[in-house]
Design a protein around this nucleic acid. Structure first.
Lengths: 417, 417
DNA sequence: CATACTTTGTTCGTCGTCTGAACAAAGATG
DNA sequence: CATCTTTGTTCAGACGACGAACAAAGTATG
């Protein structure tokens, strides 16, 4: 019995699977270089030119790669230039915030082809949020994609830890009204494309790794400063999610054991000290004592505080400096535990740049082992408020480049027939 | 020109290199299973029986694998049992502490064949320390190895961060008299075997992963409580060293910003609160107020405090409970940032077991996100004071199992000739 | 400007791996 | 006892990647 059964998995060490992996590695190389010739691929990948030619023939059929003229001679025949076709497909990246939804439609190089953004009471309205996501995705596709561009997939950044074994689960502490379920499969069904979900800070980190301040760096931390505080960690080149997906909860690192109560049930978490509501409250406190501030005109919001700090308002600056000092304690802990090569700050307040960085660097350098760190390694995000949505799209891109079957194209053989 | 050059690296996708990788993966499988038949390997590795037979023929020639009779029938011919020869080689693991040197001679299954331990003023005497290491290694080899057993390599655990790009460098903060250099190559030269160096907490974590409380777990933290406090982190199955080898400095996480000054230049580091000297000082302080303690008889040492706590002495217990509470704050930070599946405590004080664990778990569960952790996931080391030296040997074993050329055996072809 | 030399990309024969089928040995089953 | 399984080996064949050879298209040099 069981003479041969299903021979689906047998082909691992032979034929098809091996050739696919090699082809994928060549495809990734073409993506990475943008433009490259067959001969150059052969040199860098340590393959023979004949093998590369064969593989490239297959890739040309997928339309992900095209020949675009000839390059400069290196002393002999001029090479045929292969170019990765960034526009062959599109990807949707959705960011779900506490009070907004944003959607980025990107090409295969992370370029934003369309951007949609809408304020919404996400926390209290699951159904409306899902409908809004679909609407914004439709709008983005209509604005930025044409018929020829296949949708590779949809990525979603959520403001909650995501357990890889149960990606639709959302934290009931952060989003009580959602009763633990995202229900995001509707997106997948509506647009007929695979869905990938991850935490917003993780995806911010991923976006910075591929397109921003983390390019070329295999170990860094991304800290998102918003209503909540979260961190995403790139470790040995990959997002680190921990045993159950809750790594990166820097917002609940203990700073002041006697501080205010947090939604997590603890006291003195970083989030209670420098989350947006905390900063607003602190600004109010300072205004009560000293009302000679441009902030006194209106009810202060986090955006107003940021604007005032940029304009040089002393009270806003004090709020920021105090926040930087508290953040510095947590950053120092991260440096001591994880030794990242860089720390990247994202979220709204990161637009303050040096106003935030200078007191932060000062605190951190007082609190870290001398050799461990150069202060210049603390930077602000290069992608700003779009990092989350772009990172969500990048998650899809990453998986497609890792295994080109996820591009979901007609197979080469089918195209020939 | 450059018709073919050196063809050393070309063979990556063909022939020799591929066969070697496959052979190594079969060897690892035999190691992992201990005993297994060819047919079983074929099933689990999804290879054909003929291929496995061919590879096993090669492995038998290395003497790392042998046929040892037949196993139970599964309804047909009885399989020939292959057994990994744990005793074919030996490995030396050296632990360099602040005040001692320990050497473990192990087989290829992490069993300790010989154990040497000597107190020594390591911090102030580099030359004598190196000589002592050589002496203890010699003793261990004489006591536990015979002529037929080749020495695969020597691993060394050092009480300093180790930069993978400069493994002989030692921290000048921790070991000022060593002026930044380990000079451990003498070991390699003396015994004619490769040398590998890593941080002691990292190697404690590795030992627990292979042989102790971390078996089968891909994400956990090991915390070494001794003169200094360090942590080693297994992340996605591998030791995480950070960008420059200084990950895992939990000893310098900030607990009390107004605390005592640390060698690192900061205040209130965990190490200043629960390092062995701090515990001794705290015991003295308590004794001054209440001299009715068994500790009052002699000058208190860390070992004496541990013994007294085990005997139920109230003052010793208070010292331990306070230490557990401070440690708990740092452990909670680790849980929030890294979400390990387990936390393992090593170092001398870990022998207190539940006396230490109970107040620690209490503190941690008050300070961590509910869903993130079950308190039972905090445990003490299974390997105790030998974890560092065994981990150092395991580092060598790991590299040999990853690439069997590191076993440094006569090649099969050479043995045939 | 003709000749020699390079580089590129393709074609084709070859080598080495891994496979699957066939087989003998050894045991289970009824 | 005959039949069926399982194991391990042998051997021919499929297939992938390689290298050699070649044509095409360039550069360097007299």
């Amino acid at each position: 019995m069981m003479k041969s059964g299903f021979l689906g998995k047998r082909a691992r060490h032979s034929g098809a699977a091996r050739r696919r992996r090699l082809s994928d590695s060549v495809l990734r190389r073409i993506w990475r270089e943008g433009e490259i010739s067959r001969a150059e691929i052969a040199r860098r990948a340590e393959l023979s030119r004949s093998t590369v030619s064969e593989i490239v023939d297959g890739l040309l059929l997928t339309r992900l790669v095209a020949e675009v003229g000839t390059g400069p001679s290196r002393g002999g025949r001029r090479p045929i230039v292969l170019r990765f076709q960034d526009g062959a497909c599109v990807i949707l990246g959705v960011e779900m915030g506490a009070t907004h939804i944003a959607v980025a439609l990107t090409d295969l190089r992370g370029r934003v082809l369309a951007w949609e953004h809408r304020h919404h009471a996400v926390r209290t309205d699951p159904r409306g949020t899902r409908a809004l996501m679909i609407e914004l995705c439709q709008d983005a596709l209509a604005a930025g994609a044409d018929e020829s561009q296949r949708l590779v997939g949809i990525g979603v950044a959520v403001p909650s830890p995501v357990d890889p074994t149960d990606p639709d689960h959302l934290s009931e502490l952060v989003l009580p009204a959602w009763s633990g379920r995202g229900g995001l499969q509707v997106l997948s069904q509506r647009f007929g494309a695979p869905l990938m979900v991850d935490n917003d800070a993780n995806l911010g980190a991923l976006a910075e790794q591929w397109w921003g301040a983390g390019r070329g760096i295999d170990d860094f931390a991304y800290i998102k400063l918003a209503t909540g505080i979260g961190s995403g960690h790139i470790i040995a080149g990959n997002i680190y999610r921990g045993a159950r997906g809750t790594a990166g909860e820097i917002g609940h690192v203990a700073i002041d054991p006697h501080g205010a109560l947090c939604i997590c049930g603890l006291r003195g978490c970083l989030a209670t000290l420098i989350g947006a509501p905390a900063l607003v409250a602190r600004a109010r406190e300072l205004l009560a004592r000293d009302p000679d501030s441009m902030l006194a005109d209106t009810e202060p919001t986090i955006t107003a505080i940021e604007d005032a700090a940029l304009a040089g308002d002393p009270i806003a600056l004090q709020v920021v400096v105090e926040a930087a000092e508290n953040l510095g304690i947590a950053v120092a802990d991260v440096l001591n535990l994880l030794n990242p090569a860089r720390v990247i700050l994202g979220g709204g307040i990161a637009r303050l740049g040096e106003i935030l960085l200078e007191p932060l660097r000062e605190t951190v350098s007082r609190r870290t082992l001398l050799s461990a760190f150069s202060a210049s390694a603390i930077q602000v995000s290069e992608l700003g408020p779009r990092a989350g949505a772009i990172g969500a799209a990048t998650l899809v891109l990453q998986s497609a480049l890792a295994d080109s079957r996820h591009f979901n194209l007609a197979t080469p053989t089918a195209e020939i027939a």
